[in-house]
Design a protein around this nucleic acid. Structure first.
Length: 703
RNA sequence: GGACUGCUAGCUCAGUUGGUUCAGAGCAUUACUUUGACAGAGUAGGGGUCGGCGGUUCGAGCCCGCCGCAGUCCACCA
């Protein structure tokens, strides 16, 4: 309820109370006993005549000034505000500003005290009822109206919180904050993701002093001791405090320790060094080794409570930053973006999900969905992806094991040393080998590992998982294993290729292990007999070598060629069982000789030959500047390949137009950087060459 | 109320100092093919006016301004 209460004014120059009045509105009428002013807006025409006048607090007749401040909103209530500095934050600030008296009318347990003069010892709610009745009886209460306002409730007891002025311990923060702010701004301490730097800076630049005392019964009691006269000393112990009083005229038993406790963060901010006794026992071995540490992993919502303060205390007490990097994790939310909470009951049943999908799948599902710096939306579908990935790994293991048996069955001995530096691959026993596949994957592995290294350094964990996932599923399973797979079930596996394959598999398991620890360890041991203590979880990474770009590029081209030929087969309805004969028109025959066995197998071709001219009666594909001719028994319908070629041609011509337009724009040529212009010219040349190749193919088709 | 962050495909997200036809990836979805490691594999496709409106520039998903929506933290109004 909102009470409208009339305060009578003094006469224009003095003492006497008059019938003239001003009406204020309040939801807490009992606090009028603590009023020390009435405040109105300086521009409010209704009250301008009140300048210099005084009002009398109803019932107790304390004379209080009328002040003017634009803090008051003219629209709310009557436009006049009663000021109670002791029991309202804003009123307190007004009081400070206007030099008002402070009258605290409440006791610690919410009853009225002597200062209130009335209802002494009554509970605040009891007093509210009584004063309302008394005000009405004395003609001060104009009216009441219903009003909903925001009240503070105790988190634990639900009691209504009444603001009350009290003495507290504070830490002055200005000096502490400066080195801590600088350290983050100049990247001496790095935040991941970096967006939190702005938040941090804003807080640090507007830092307020830190109130460290809490009115709690548990926690660390504040080590301050009071003498009977109210003076105090801060010390480690009562004895030391007593010693600090000069010429005390009281005994040590008269000292009384402060009853308040320290804010919980006041001990937490010492954590980085004091867990190693770095302050209380400076220079010990542990602190020298562990301080500063590398990385703090924590939640963004405690960036001020904890992170900022650890940085401040580190510089203050250790003269050194506490850590080099801070990684802020996201908050786990449900599919609808809501925080997980007990009240909503939307937390996932992790044990149930583990039963359903497997522990590694759950880990996978969570990690794949946690991009650096974003919240994590928890959704079952990503767990399914994790489960399928488990399955994929398992099947790849089964395949490789099968090959292993076949190698051994043919009398090969699998030696213990795998994956050494030797690039030379010994001659097998006449089976077709895939030297290129082995060489390609080796380089591909190094290439991806370098990529992963960077992603880990940037804390891009979900991307690192995606990269690993794709390396295993696409590069290893879809391409590499198919490339080294013997052409038929009857053919044995080459021993050297087999050993390399197992070694690559080992490395992949190792890369994946942090994300999926269980299945990787399991497969690691199923793949091969291991010595005691040879486990993925403690395996050391080998050095990352520079990948041979030439080889990885050839691998990419090979994939592209295989995909294009498969596409052509589908489009021309060539049955997958029917072998084709492949003719290649290229100026790099050796490159295709090297991958011949792979290419034949992957597109089901029975022969590969090179040609200088178009081969009549074949299907015709253009990849880059090279041409491929597919010879087949199937009756060909050239419409679809014409369509494809024309589509490509149209695309390229459109591309050429945009490039030409750009190069024809004088302002572009003048203003753009020279290398950008050169790039455009190269694009034009490339496009023109491709267009020529396609036009030739189209011409040979219609012949 | 203040501040910070985000807004790109059905979903989750990339997009590095503005410069390839830049509009992408994964998952999901559709069609066809295949099924001899695969509760699968292969090939192709659909799907977005990059939150909105202005501006700067030869050129904007990217830079600037205003607005909208969402999230978070801080402060909290008689």
């Amino acid at each position: 309820k909102l009470y409208h209460i009339r305060y009578f004014l003094d006469d224009a120059n003095g003492e006497q109370q008059t019938q003239e009045s001003v009406t204020i509105a309040t939801v807490r009428p009992e606090t009028i006993l603590g009023d020390t002013a009435i405040c109105v807006h300086p521009d409010d025409e209704r009250y301008k005549h009140l300048k210099g006048r005084f009002a009398f607090v109803p019932l107790i007749n304390r004379k209080i000034p009328i002040i003017f401040d634009d803090y008051v909103s003219m629209e709310f209530g009557t436009g006049a505000l009663k000021v109670t500095p002791a029991h309202d934050m804003n009123d307190y600030q007004l009081g400070q500003k206007h030099g008002l008296e402070v009258v605290d009318i409440l006791t610690e347990d919410g009853r009225l005290n002597e200062e209130a003069q009335l209802y002494i010892g009554d509970d605040r709610f009891e007093a509210r009822k009584k004063i309302a009745a008394d005000l009405e009886a004395k003609g001060h209460l104009i009216k009441t109206e219903d009003y909903t306002n925001q009240l503070g409730f105790s988190e634990r007891t639900d009691a209504v919180v009444e603001p009350r002025l009290s003495l507290q311990w504070w830490v002055s923060m200005k000096k502490l904050s400066e080195p801590a702010l600088n350290a983050v701004m100049n990247d001496e301490i790095k935040f991941y993701p970096a967006k939190f730097r702005n938040l941090y800076r804003h807080w640090m630049e507007n830092i307020r002093d830190w109130c460290i005392s809490r009115q709690l019964w548990w926690g660390q009691q504040i080590p301050a001791w009071y003498a009977p006269d109210g003076s105090f000393q801060v010390a480690e112990s009562k004895e030391k405090a007593f010693a600090q009083f000069k010429n005390p005229n009281f005994s040590i038993d008269d000292l009384k320790q402060d009853e308040d406790c320290l804010d919980t963060w006041f001990s937490s901010w010492l954590w980085p060094f004091e867990v190693f006794r770095g302050f209380s026992n400076p220079g010990n071995e542990d602190i020298k080794y562990y301080y500063p540490t590398n990385t703090l992993v924590t939640a963004p919502e405690i960036i001020f409570f904890w992170v900022a303060r650890m940085i401040m205390s580190g510089f203050e007490y250790m003269k050194e930053k506490p850590f080099q990097e801070v990684y802020f994790t996201g908050i786990v939310r449900d599919k609808l973006g809501r925080k997980m909470s007990k009240q909503l009951g939307n937390s996932p049943d992790l044990l149930g999900l583990i039963d359903q999908y497997g522990a590694d799948a759950v880990r996978f599902g969570i990690l794949i969905a946690s991009p650096a710096g974003n919240d994590l939306l928890f959704d079952d579908s990503s767990l399914e992806q994790g489960r399928n990935f488990n399955n994929k790994l398992w099947n790849a293991m089964k395949l490789v094991r099968m090959w292993g048996e076949r190698v051994l069955g043919f009398g090969f001995r699998v030696s213990g040393s795998v994956g050494g530096g030797s690039k030379e691959i010994s001659e097998g026993n006449g089976v077709s080998r895939s030297d290129f596949a082995v060489e390609w994957f080796e380089n591909r592995l190094h290439e991806v590992r370098a990529e992963l290294e960077q992603q880990y350094a940037d804390f891009r964990l979900s991307e690192a998982l995606k990269t690993t996932y794709s390396l295993i599923w696409d590069d290893f399973c879809s391409w590499y294993l198919e490339w080294v797979k013997p052409a038929s079930a009857a053919q044995p596996m080459d021993a050297v290729v087999y050993e390399k394959t197992v070694a690559y598999f080992d490395q992949l398991l190792q890369l994946l292990h942090p994300f999926m620890p269980f299945i990787t360890e399991e497969i690691y041991h199923l793949l091969k007999e291991r010595k005691q203590g040879d486990d993925v979880c403690i395996r050391q990474y080998g050095p990352i070598q520079t990948a041979d770009k030439e080889i990885t590029a050839r691998g990419e081209l090979l994939k592209q060629v295989i995909t294009a030929i498969r596409d052509t087969r589908v489009k021309n309805n060539i049955k997958s069982r029917e072998p084709i004969r492949l003719h290649v028109q290229t100026n790099n025959e050796k490159a295709y000789r090297d991958v011949e066995s792979i290419l034949l197998k992957q597109v089901n071709a029975e022969s590969l030959s090179f040609t200088k001219d178009a081969v009549p009666g074949t299907v015709n594909i253009v990849i880059g500047k090279e041409k491929f001719y597919l010879e087949t028994e199937t009756v060909l319908d050239t419409t679809s390949q014409k369509e494809q070629l024309e589509k490509d041609l149209e695309y390229l011509k459109g591309f050429l137009i945009t490039v030409d337009k750009k190069l024809g724009n004088e302002r572009f040529v003048q203003n753009a950087k020279p290398e950008v212009v050169a790039l455009e010219q190269k694009k034009r040349a490339d496009a023109e060459a491709k267009i020529r190749a396609i036009e030739e193919s189209l011409a040979s088709l219609s012949r």
